[in-house]
Design a protein around this nucleic acid. Structure first.
Lengths: 217, 217
DNA sequence: TTGTCAAGAATGAATGTTCGTTTTAAGTTT
DNA sequence: AAACTTAAAACGAACATTCATTCTTGACAA
């Protein structure tokens, strides 16, 4: 390279190389963690899966906890992006279609976690949820993201209500939370009981949408 | 000694005492595990919480794994019982009511896990899900239980369909899975975002039930 | 009732192992 | 050869589990 000044500490390898190494570690770790959880996976498991030595990995992540957090935030980001992009569609499709879009994005979407196969990702989500219960910083991050998602979905539901598509005597954010819950539950089922098509949730919502009434309360 | 019959293994303390000790260990362990997860909880944490020594605990449970499995199966049982009893109600109430019953049972129900407070139980459920991904024996148990629940709920949905309450061009078991997913997702939300009333899910379903149409497909 | 005793129940310090992390030495690139 | 990265050995801490020991219980003799 024709750089004239070389400062002490100047990187010897390109930024792309550094980024690729980081991603190589994250991908290997994600595979391990999806398989065995964070705390039953040793750093040596991660090293082997990533094909690197301890020194290498500890150059990119100061500790196992930092690695776990990086993975968890990747997962948060992927899921959150799926929820947000589906809520932004105009005009808003009916709930069954919206939830189908979310799941499509989560499982196939713009490859934040490209390296994980379709069954790996839901497993990782469950591990991240469990870890979130132990790590107040992760919990705070998740809550912040969830608030944004819930607001977007509440707005979506209010559009249904204003257009007369949905009764407006139920709080919009209760409906929003329920839709989010359906997706979360479906992800849990994918992890626990194996893969199944997105149409399961779509059909399920269509069935529910055809039930008249419900108690006024 | 002129004792005529002395059986080896003759109980020195009452069966109630043994049962109470076992429960004391399970309750302490459940509190620890709900707080910190299975693998970030040491046996010494469990011992302290239960107020017993290592030897005492290892008399009742051969290993940490055996303790984890006992806890997990308690959790499975509690959730499964809630799903089953709600599905058995005749005549079947509308979906919003049925799901409300399930949640009521899970959070307040016949105290299988009496010792855990309301926020503790959903946390424990998430930890058990995560552990289930690592333990094929737990996974098999969960799948067996889930099949029974899904069958019961499919039957319930078929009753809706036969009575004309729900369109019958969607597979009943897809609707059943969706209802179960909504409950699972709600439990996850309880653990991750804090408590909220059962009426959130009830209202949410009522809102959805009032949406007409949905694509035929 | 009271005292005795064998066996079950409980203890907690000790054990060997495994973990995350650091250090050190060899290698690679420019 | 300088600048920097990687590999591998090594370390202390923490872990699950064991075991020699002490305490407790309840049947039975008197």
């Amino acid at each position: 390279m024709n750089v004239r000044f070389k400062f002490a500490g100047m990187a010897r390898v390109s930024q792309e190389h550094l980024d690729a190494r980081r991603r190589q570690i994250l991908d290997g770790a994600a595979r391990c963690f999806a398989r065995n959880g964070f705390h039953a996976t040793s750093m040596q498991d991660v090293l082997k899966e990533a094909g690197l030595s301890a020194g290498a990995v500890y150059r990119y992540f100061r500790s196992k906890e930092e690695l776990i957090r990086a993975i968890a935030e990747d997962v948060f980001g992927t899921v959150r992006a799926a929820f947000e992009s589906a809520a932004r569609e105009t005009p808003p499709p009916l709930p069954d279609v919206v939830l189908g879009r979310v799941l499509g994005q989560v499982f196939l979407g713009p490859q934040a976690m490209a390296d994980l196969d379709r069954e790996g990702f839901p497993r990782l989500v469950l591990q991240v949820w469990a870890e979130t219960l132990r790590d107040e910083e992760l919990a705070a991050t998740l809550r912040r993201g969830y608030e944004v998602v819930r607001d977007a979905w509440t707005t979506l539901v209010q559009q249904y209500q204003r257009s007369g598509l949905m009764r407006d005597d139920v709080p919009a954010d209760h409906v929003a939370r329920t839709l989010v819950a359906a997706v979360q539950g479906f992800i849990a089922q994918q992890a626990l009981f194996g893969e199944s098509g997105i149409e399961v949730l779509e059909d399920g919502l269509r069935g529910l949408m055809s039930v008249p009434g419900g108690n006024i309360g």
